Amino acid sequence: MKRIAIFASGSGSNAENIIRYFQNNKKAEVVLVLSNNPNALVLERATKLGVKNLTFGKEQLNDSKWAVENLKNLDLIVLAGFLWKFPEHLLETYKNKVVNVHPALLPKYGGKGMYGMHVHKAVVENNEAESGITIHYVNEHYDEGAIIFQAKCSINKKDTPNDVAAKIHELEMKYFPEVVQQILSTDG
């Protein structure tokens, strides 16, 4: 059975969607949800779904001993709305096993500070005709890891950042769990 851990900082709708997707799967399961925000709704969602969860601070995340104790035997780490830069020691330990979903078509609208509504606002302000999601491997630079998958949606001239956010959320809900399963299926 493949083991998945999810890192999230906020409400956790993507995390919940992935947990539910794998609940009756015989090949993979979400075994742990981690958050840097002790008040994040994702922790409540994980508890309700019976998934172990824990919170941590920067010092813990950057401590390789803490990581060894808490991140054992994982096949994939999924960043689902996790806003901190992922530590290099974990990227080395889990080489090509850390993935993220970004709410734009990278390389556009990526980098430090480009997340959530910041991205959608920039897309609207620049009169983009389309946006989408990018699922990519995580490396030592924000949003620069190898692209695994992209899905697009059209943007109308009357769309607000909230309209764009709704379209992006729909793409995330549809594709993120499927792509996670594909990654695990092709990974030995």
Rank of each mutant, 00 (worst) to 15 (best):
R3L: 05
R3Q: 13
A5W: 08
A5D: 08
F7D: 12
F7V: 08
S11I: 04
G12S: 08
G12P: 02
S13P: 04
S13C: 04
A15K: 02
E16Y: 02
N17I: 13
Y21C: 03
F22W: 07
N25F: 05
N25L: 05
K26E: 14
K26I: 10
A28E: 10
E29Q: 15
E29L: 13
L34I: 15
L34W: 00
N36Q: 03
P38Y: 08
N39E: 14
L41N: 15
V42D: 00
V42R: 01
V42C: 11
R45E: 08
T47V: 13
K48T: 09
V51P: 00
T55A: 12
K58L: 07
E59F: 06
Q60D: 13
N62P: 09
D63Y: 02
S64P: 08
W66E: 08
W66D: 06
A67L: 10
E69L: 09
K72P: 02
N73H: 10
V78T: 02
L79A: 10
A80G: 11
F82A: 04
L83R: 01
K85P: 05
F86I: 02
F86Q: 05
K95H: 14
K97A: 13
V98L: 13
V98I: 09
V99D: 02
N100E: 01
H102K: 10
A104G: 09
L106I: 10
K108P: 00
Y109A: 02
K112D: 07
M117W: 02
H118Q: 12
V119N: 03
H120L: 08
K121T: 14
A122M: 11
V123F: 00
V123G: 03
E125H: 09
N126H: 12
N126L: 12
N127H: 15
E128M: 09
E130D: 14
E130V: 04
G132Q: 04
I135H: 06
H136M: 12
H136W: 09
Y137F: 15
E144K: 14
A146N: 14
A146H: 10
I148R: 07
F149A: 11
F149R: 10
Q150P: 01
K152Q: 08
C153E: 07
I155H: 01
N156C: 07
D159F: 10
N162P: 00
A166L: 13
I168C: 04
H169D: 03
H169K: 11
H169V: 01
Y175T: 07
E178Q: 14
I183W: 00
L184A: 04
L184I: 02
L184S: 12
G188E: 13
